[in-house]
Design a protein around this nucleic acid. Structure first.
Lengths: 336, 336
DNA sequence: TGCTAAACTGAAAGTGCTTTCAAAAAAAAC
DNA sequence: GTTTTTTTTGAAAGCACTTTCAGTTTAGCA
């Protein structure tokens, strides 16, 4: 049997019920102006076709939109996902739709930023881990697009950040307290792409500074900059552990990289934590599974918070901007 | 001077820049087809007026919204995320927006299913790991909403599935080949929620059957049904490994549960793979990091495929339905 | 029964944009 | 210096409705 093609339009309804489209429109909008008899006939046709006026749907779904967008790089990394999860759960409760704009190039970002406040009909925006130029921030702000930045901050927009440097400090303190003497660092210090944020430098700074203040050193040779990818992280880890006198305590700037490090250590038969201590950063879900000591940054919570801020500001546009600094804490597990 | 009138339309821009509206539209959509000179003039006019194309009018003219939706259960599990990633990358390339509808209850699902085709604010729908009643499938199909099901299939809609039973078989064969003699199983056999799919039973069936055909047995006591959560998986693992004569080879129905199992083994000082072999299912990203032997089901690929099918069907509505069965293969790493 | 006001209804003119088609202009080929 | 392509551009035809304006009916009332 022939399947129905396009969804029915007002014309189809008109034809089926034998009246003009104007009448259909009236039935839909100003019921009172239509004869009861006709009204019934039209309704029957509408039901029969399963007709839904698109404009109305659009108005319902778009004008007062109930939809918020999230700009996120790649959203491949577990940390993004966990944040997204926080966002999603809050939004879902409030009956908001979640539109995701994966960013994978600078041009992409620019395109979104310039078109989002305009064309896209969302009534709020969350920007995760992406740096934003003054002009763009200005534009968003001017256009009245409620925005929350995560992992980046700008005076004109709401933001949620963590103190990465403090995170590095926590790690150093932990290592010292545990009695380790020789330290290393793995992380993608070089910004992987211009458009993405790289808080790794701050983590390193905090780590290094604290060590130095305590009288320890972090030689250049023990600092490996490696991109986020598995292969390269592993390469960096291998190099670090193959040094004549490898460090005994390594801080990996992300849990994923810590995992790579652990994998290499396993292959080299280096026992963790006896011969090597590892601390990660993020506390992603799997960190617990593999018993990784790490810095917890409450990823879910940051997402949840971002969504909540957005929602309240959408409700009351004149609420003051919020700049939130989320606390960090070290979760000690089995790798130190 | 901030005396704003009506928001400018494409006509205003046309007048100001001295070209026709078609050209404006072209500048906005197909930049390459416009003379550089003209392009610049138009852009200037656009900026000057602060012109913003109205999404509604645009969608109407294009008869499409360039937006597709994904229905997914609590998108917390890594496997969902990886699939989503595949979807996102494909969609992003094709310039489609991705709207996520997290489903966390039966009512939720129902609500979405019945309103989505009506609202018509998406061009296509991907439904991940959710079972769909005949009526709902019918409704989607009738309403001409292009849909792709993942991990579930229905004759009236496109679908992408894997052969879970075969997966179980692969695991059993691998164990046997490796010389293991005593087997166990951990997985959430009981459907966690009515609305979610539970392919775990099939995995178990394939596993068990193959073992039996090879002359081995899988006693009831060695089959632990446990929900997906960490805590309960761990409990199940603990019970299994604490038996007087624990199995030496365990098949975990998901990688996450395999991780829990590995964690418990570590705590009990059971060496993997010498004293215990573990095989997971999914091959999520971290599986490689922790060197878990597992069944790869190409999560990314399934997402990508789903999106591609959707896109081509949106382009040509009369393309035949596709029912794809994705191949499974065992990736041997260090846990067996 | 005749006449007017009220109640309905349809034709057609927007709405703001995309896209096709063909003309005009510019560039390339002869 | 023509002729043929190719590139640009504008006119006009949608898209799916809403609304205005008039024409028809119908109802109300002498």
């Amino acid at each position: 049997m022939p399947s129905k093609k396009k969804s029915p339009t007002i014309y189809d309804v008109a034809k089926l019920s034998g009246v003009s489209i104007s009448t259909i429109s009236r039935v839909l909008n100003a019921t009172d102006k239509v004869n009861a008899e006709t009204h019934k006939r039209v309704m029957k046709a509408i039901d029969q076709l399963g007709f839904v006026p698109r404009a109305e749907a659009r108005a319902r779904a778009m004008q007062s939109t109930a939809r918020i967008g999230v700009l996120t790089p790649f959203f491949t990394a577990p940390s993004f996902v966990q944040r997204l999860r926080g966002v999603a759960s809050t939004l879902s409760k409030a009956n908001y739709e979640l539109v995701i704009y994966p960013v994978d190039s600078m041009a992409h970002l620019q395109g979104y930023i310039s078109s989002i406040p305009l064309m896209r009909n969302i009534d709020g925006l969350i920007i995760m881990s992406l740096s934003l130029g003054d002009q763009d921030a200005q534009r968003l702000s001017n256009n009245g697009m409620e925005t929350v930045l995560i992992e980046y901050s700008h005076p004109q927009l709401n933001s949620i950040v963590i103190d990465d440097q403090h995170g590095g400090q926590l790690v150093a303190e932990h290592f010292i307290k545990k009695g380790y003497k020789s330290f290393g660092f793995i992380g993608d210090i070089e910004p992987p792409e211009k458009f993405a944020i790289h808080p790794v430098k701050s983590r390193l700074t905090g780590f290094k500074q604290t060590l130095q203040e305590a009288g320890f050193s972090l030689p250049k040779a023990y600092i490996r900059s490696s991109p986020y990818t598995q292969k390269e992280s592993r390469q960096a880890a291998l190099e670090l552990l193959s040094l004549p006198k490898p460090p005994t305590a390594i801080f990996a700037a992300s849990d994923i990289q810590a995992l790579s490090l652990m994998k290499v250590a396993r292959q080299l038969n280096i026992n963790i934590p006896n011969n090597l201590a590892v601390v990660g950063f993020d506390d992603i879900d799997v960190a617990e599974h593999v018993d990784l000591t790490t810095i917890r940054q409450h990823l879910d919570e940051s997402g949840r918070l971002a969504a909540e801020i957005l929602l309240t500001r959408i409700g009351e546009h004149d609420r003051p901007l919020q700049h939130i600094n989320l606390p960090l804490n070290l979760i000690e597990r089995m790798t130190t």
